[in-house]
């Protein structure tokens, strides 16, 4: 792990922790909050916990492998191993195919349930964004390879 990467994990774990504590303080300070102030503290707690947990985990992993260079090398080999990378990409590809089908089915279901237009439009935008990203990378990689 590079020094900058280590500093980044430290910074983000601090930011995550502050968000979490800030969220808790907001919940306690404004029990009768309305509108967005009702959601904001819980959003802070949720995001803060996630950011703090992930970055702390990376820091602990760094501390563990620092003591054991052989384990660090093995982790690096496992991460870069071409078969492992191929397996991960194949699994991701299958999940993507399934996700587009699930998205389409959900979109159809919401439309048939006469859901609010903004829900259907949000779903459509998300679906098109994903399909658009796929098309973008297809073109990009065709040019590169």
């Amino acid at each position: 792990m590079k020094k900058t990467e280590h500093a980044r994990y430290k910074l983000f774990s601090g930011v995550g922790f502050l968000m979490f504590v800030g969220g808790l303080i907001l919940v306690k300070s404004f029990p009768a909050a309305e509108d967005y102030m009702l959601v904001l503290p819980y959003l802070c707690i949720g995001i803060g916990t996630g950011v703090f947990g992930y970055n702390l985990g990376e820091l602990l992993k760094f501390a563990a492998v620092k003591k054991d260079p052989a384990a660090a090398k093995q982790i690096e080999i496992e991460t870069k191993d071409e078969r492992n990378v191929t397996i991960a990409l194949k699994a991701k590809s299958k999940a993507y195919d399934l996700m587009t089908m699930v998205f389409a089915a959900l979109l159809l279901a919401f439309a048939m349930m006469s859901a609010e237009l903004y829900i259907i439009l949000t779903f459509t935008a998300a679906y098109l964004f994903i399909v658009g990203t796929n098309a973008y990378y297809l073109i990009k990689y065709r040019k590169e390879m």
């Binding site: 080999i77 496992e78 870069k80 191993d81 071409e82 078969r83 492992n84």
Partner: peptide
Amino acid sequence: LAAVLEVSRQTIGS
């Protein structure tokens, strides 16, 4: 062999 080639042992097996 896996260590020399810097791949996992499972890759050699496969």
